[in-house]
Write a protein that binds this DNA or RNA. Sequence first.
DNA 1: AAATTTAGCTTGCATTATGCAAGTAGATTT
DNA 2: AAATCTACTTGCATAATGCAAGCTAAATTT
Lengths: 140, 140
Amino acid sequence: MSISLEMLGDRWSLLIVRDLMVRGYRTFREFERSGEGIASNILADRLRKLEAAGILTVEAEETDGRKLNYRLTEKGIDLAPVVLELLIWGARHEETGAPCAVMVEMAKNREAVLAETRRRWQERDPTPLLPPFGKDSTEK
Amino acid sequence: MSISLEMLGDRWSLLIVRDLMVRGYRTFREFERSGEGIASNILADRLRKLEAAGILTVEAEETDGRKLNYRLTEKGIDLAPVVLELLIWGARHEETGAPCAVMVEMAKNREAVLAETRRRWQERDPTPLLPPFGKDSTEK
DNA sequence: AAATTTAGCTTGCATTATGCAAGTAGATTT
DNA sequence: AAATCTACTTGCATAATGCAAGCTAAATTT
């Protein structure tokens, strides 16, 4: 676990993974504008490190040569249970961000939620699993 | 989740929680000597912050006035699923630390493992759930 | 086709966190 | 009473982070 935390143990990495996983983010801009307030240099650094760690990949968008698409790898999507448990824990003990009722439901159906998350990843379905919740909306 | 990561998102906090949860650590010394190489000032700082966050409590050991005992709170033990999933993910994708066969078994019996973890916590049973694995033993 | 905007960064600099070695106070052991 | 042990703290060097600004190439607007 200490190796995992060398990689993921910081303020931002898991948040990026979550946004890729659960919110359908793909581009640099989406992360930058997500309202969590990550600085662009740090974001660039984390994306590079996550790529180096094999958690995500980058590819150019064919329809718009400026844009890059970040996408979780198999190794990255395998973090779904970690992310889900953290979301559940946070909802129970810390945050009011994600609507509590929704999270209670998710906690009751972990397997279904994980299956759906993986399905969307496989099919490249960018529909967010969770509605946006951030500084802009309701998260405290 | 961003609030959770403000608290837990660093190299050491979750490692401390894991050691309390799964290895039966209780005292400052045990953490210091665990071989992960945390500096004593950082350890003191993290223990203070985790206490402030309501994840652990401190009490003096009655038999030895020098020693303090750190112990997870309910909120702390509720991190067990997060820790377990991180352990499983790490075993699958990163580390050779915890014997892989053991982790595969745990992955198959998540509920039982969590129940046993909670039982030990409730009964203050300090028996480690996992054998030591660290720089001193096998973890890379 | 020139000008503007957009996307994904980088750079410079100030602030903060981390790591290391050493030291300290109080309790305990010898 | 001297030595040892536990849980720290302190000082200082180095690394990571945050902020504002700038930069380049591709796309869009005029």
